[in-house]
Computed example of a mutant assay.
Amino acid sequence: MDRNWDELLQELRVTQTGLQILTGFLVSIPFQQRFSDITSLQQTLYLGALAVALTATLTVLAPASFHRLLFRQQEKEWLVRMGNRFARAGLALSAVAIALVAWLLFDVVLGRTAGQIAVGSVIVLVVVLWYGVPLVARRRSTVAGTPHS
């Protein structure tokens, strides 16, 4: 359990850094001069991306709070199980936030069609890179008889 917890914390540190950068970028956008010129769709995309990024950030930070509140309470198994669930949820929310940001930025810079292509491309890349690649590796290790703990 200690090794699992340490590995989970390392993964959360990487995710947290990326989310902090993305969220910081989103928080700064309304203070830009051109922000008042965005369309209602772009405003909706912006607010959606911000809400999802904030939720993802809180979700990824939750296991650290769990640990602080349950420190030395013999709850390591629960911490690992719940930390894993929150890490997975945080990654899923991160994917949604990244897709919405891509849609927003491409829509603002190149137009509606480019925004739609960008969001579709990000969704495909997330599915392939974040889920497809590990599932292929898992399947390959199962076929080869290698355990995948």
Rank of each mutant, 00 (worst) to 15 (best):
F25Y: 15
M1S: 13
G145W: 07
T39D: 13
Q32A: 13
I98P: 00
T59V: 11
R85V: 07
G24C: 08
V136M: 10
A95M: 04
V133Y: 06
T15H: 07
L69Q: 05
S28I: 10
A51W: 04
T55K: 01
V80Y: 05
R34W: 13
A97I: 05
R85H: 11
L93K: 01
P147C: 00
A89S: 03
S36E: 13
R88N: 14
V136N: 11
T146A: 11
F106I: 01
Q16N: 15
A99G: 08
W130Y: 14
E77Y: 06
A144V: 03
A114K: 00
L47R: 13
L104R: 06
S141N: 15
T57D: 10
M82F: 07
L45W: 09
V126P: 09
A51M: 02
I117N: 07
V101T: 15
G111C: 04
L58C: 09
L47Q: 14
V122H: 04
L70W: 08
A118G: 04
T39K: 03
S121I: 03
R13G: 04
L41E: 13
M82S: 07
M82R: 11
W78M: 08
M82E: 10
S94R: 03
R34G: 15
L135K: 05
M1L: 05
V60G: 04
T39A: 10
L91W: 11
G48M: 05
R13W: 14
T59N: 05
R139K: 11
H148N: 12
H67Q: 11
H148E: 10
V108Q: 11
A114P: 03
A56I: 00
T57W: 00
S94K: 05
I21F: 10
L79F: 01
W103C: 11
T44V: 13
L110M: 09
S40Y: 12
L50A: 03
A89H: 03
L26Y: 03
T44R: 13
V14Q: 07
A53Q: 02
T146Y: 14
M1E: 12
D6N: 05
V14M: 06
G115I: 02
R88P: 02
W5Y: 10
